[in-house]
Amino acid sequence: MQNRGIREQKRRETLQRIRDAAAGLVDKHGYDNVTVDDICHAAGISRRTFFNYVDSKDEAILGSFPFTFTPEALDHIRDTPSENVLELVIRSIVVEPGRFDGPAAKCRHELLEHNPGLMHAEATRRRGFLTELGRAIYDHFERFPGDRRHAGSLEDEAHFIVVLFQGAVSRYLWHPPDSADPIAQLLENAQTLSNYTKDMTW
C-alpha cells in the first residue's frame, strides 16, 4: 500500500516535470519552435518515458483533454427526448478522471494568447469529438422533431447546438475552475452564453 502511494507520487512528480518543462519552453521559444525532444531534455527524461505519460506535445503543454463522449453517451443523446438538447448534451458528457491537469489557468491563458499555433492545436483536439456529437444531435432531432426550436434545417439546428456547446467547453478550458464540478460549470457556461445572445439587439 505504501509502495503504491510512493509510485503514484513519483508519477505525479514526473508528469508535473514534463508539464512545467513544456510550458517553460513554449513561453521562452514559442510553440512552433519546441519539439518533443526539447521537452524530454528539459525534463530529464527519455522519449519513451514522455510517451508513457502523455500522448503528444500538445497534451504536454495544454494538459489532457478533460471531456469525451463514449458510444453509450452518444446513443443517449440520440435516444433521449429533451426540451433542452444542449443540456442533454452536457449531462451526457464523460469527464475524464481527475481535474484538468494542464498548467495553471493564468499560465495556460498566456500560452494560448501568445502562441497562435497552440490555439490551433487546441481547436484541432476538439474537432473530432465535435463531429461525432453533431451527428448524434442530428439523429436526435430526426427522431424527436418536437424537441426542435428552429424552423430551419436539421443541419442548421444541430450546428447551433454544437456551436453553443463548443463555446461552453472553450470557456471552461480557457479558465479551468479549481474545484467546481465540471458538468455544473459547463451548464453555467452554456446558460451564460444563451442569456447573452438573447439580450443582443439587431
Rank of each mutant, 00 (worst) to 15 (best):
T80V: 04
R108F: 04
E83Y: 12
C107S: 05
T80H: 12
V89Y: 00
L86S: 00
G98S: 08
A105F: 08
R108K: 09
I93E: 01
V94P: 04
G102E: 02
V89C: 08
K106A: 11
E110V: 12
L111V: 04
N84S: 13
D79K: 13
L86H: 02
E87T: 06
N84Q: 11
D101H: 07
R108M: 07
E87S: 14
L88V: 13
L86P: 01
V95N: 02
R108S: 02
P81N: 06
P103D: 01
T80E: 01
V89M: 07
L86R: 00
R99W: 10
V95T: 06
L86W: 05
E96P: 07
S82K: 10
P97N: 07
E83H: 08
A105E: 08
P81G: 05
K106F: 14
D101S: 13
R78N: 11
A105Q: 08
V94G: 10
V95F: 01
L88D: 08
D101L: 11
L111T: 01
V95P: 00
C107A: 06
N84A: 09
D79M: 15
G102K: 05
V94E: 09
L86K: 01
T80R: 02
P103F: 01
E110S: 08
L111M: 05
N84F: 04
P103Q: 00
V89S: 05
V89H: 01
R91A: 09
N84M: 04
L111E: 02
G102F: 07
F100P: 02
D101Y: 09
N84L: 07
P81M: 03
R78V: 11
A104D: 10
G98L: 15
T80A: 06
H109A: 07
P81E: 03
E96H: 12
